[in-house]
């Protein structure tokens, strides 16, 4: 099911929470809303579900207006699934009763519940009470409960927060597969950029009630529109440079300049993995190496004590020659800078 949000505005007690947001998705698409806490992403999800009414704007589901122009369809009539951050399982009902809650009165409930439990790998948990389940199990029950009504649009609010790392990786894979298998349009709210990029077909970065940038994960990661986006999506390094209008010269080599880059002394933002170091007479000196697996983090200090310290990410097999005290040259692997700011 496609959806559209148009010119959405909302304020609580006079404080604006959503400032004129427009957002839409095609049927079957997975859209991630990424942003720091308090940026309005959960509120946007609640507006889509009908749990919150905006002050202005329209909401459409499958091109039908469900909010705006005097219409406000209540949440129970919108046929959307919602996975809550705290799962919101009903503590007084068994797993079976929880899952069947939204499909009361339909035939073959037992069969449906059994199928749903099987799809989340929790067969046999029908009579368990939610409080006896682990966090990961509760998350899967909540997902099964939301899927029971066969929604065409699924809204997931921080679905994997509060789970430990390994479980998080497992669950985001199985959730992603379930959503794609059923062809369900999904909106996932998260503050974790890696999770957002993993799950999303398209990604919308939000800040202070507005959308900063929207696009594929690659676009946001590699072509951020501003420093906020560049830093939010991943680690960045800042190096000094000079832009003469054609080339930006830096200690790590030259970058291509484009017309929209500021002229003169500039700061060039790059991803740590796009820089590498070559042993030999150079501007920097290795201070320390931190082995963290496939990559090694290398601390560099400027031998002339002029530029700030840097930490670059080097594939571990290339680090034998980078002993402490070794003089090195910094080299960019790419000619396009991530971002150039004055």
């Amino acid at each position: 099911m496609s959806f559209g949000l148009h010119s959405i505005r909302l304020a609580f007690d006079g404080v604006p929470v959503i400032n004129g947001v427009a957002l839409s998705a095609e049927s079957g698409e997975t859209l991630c809303l990424l942003g720091p806490s308090g940026c309005g992403k959960t509120t946007l999800l609640r507006i889509l579900a009908g749990l919150e009414a905006p002050d202005a704007g329209t909401v459409t589901l499958s091109d039908v207006t469900v909010f705006g122009a005097g219409v406000n369809l209540p949440p129970e009539k919108r046929q959307v699934g919602y996975l809550f951050q705290d799962y919101a399982l009903f503590p007084h009902l068994t797993v079976e009763q929880n899952i069947a809650f939204g499909i009361q009165g339909t035939p073959n409930i037992e069969r449906q519940v059994a199928d749903l439990l099987a799809s989340v790998n929790l067969s046999g948990f029908e009579n368990a009470m939610p409080s006896t389940l682990s966090g990961g199990q509760q998350q899967r029950i909540a997902l099964a409960r939301a899927l029971a009504r066969r929604p065409h649009l699924m809204l997931l609010d921080e679905p994997f927060s509060g789970l430990d790392t390994e479980l998080k990786l497992q669950l985001r894979e199985s959730t992603h597969r379930l959503l794609k298998e059923h062809g369900i349009t999904a909106v996932i709210v998260t503050h974790d950029p890696e999770e957002a990029m993993y799950m999303a077909d398209r990604l919308a970065l939000m800040d202070q009630g507005g959308i900063v940038q929207i696009g594929t994960p690659q676009e946001l990661y590699n072509q951020p529109v501003n420093q906020f986006c560049a830093r939010f999506l991943g680690a960045t390094l800042t190096i000094q440079g000079h832009n003469d209008g054609q080339l930006i010269r830096t200690v790590a080599g030259t970058f291509n300049a484009s017309p929209n880059h500021p002229i003169g002394d500039v700061q060039v933002l790059v991803r740590p993995e796009s820089l590498t170091v070559r042993p030999g007479e150079g501007r920097y000196e290795v201070l320390h190496r931190h082995f963290v697996g496939a990559h090694t983090l290398v601390d560099l200090v400027d031998s002339q004590a002029q530029f700030p310290d840097l930490q670059v990410l080097v594939p571990t097999e290339q680090t034998q020659a980078l002993a402490a005290g070794q003089s090195v040259t910094l080299l960019s692997l790419q000619e396009q800078p991530l971002l150039v700011v004055a």
């Binding site: 579900a49 949440p75 129970e76 919602y82 009903f90 009504r149």
Partner: peptide, 9 residues
Amino acid sequence: AAARTLGKG
């Protein structure tokens, strides 16, 4: 909210 999105008034 969960009860509402699960179709209950």
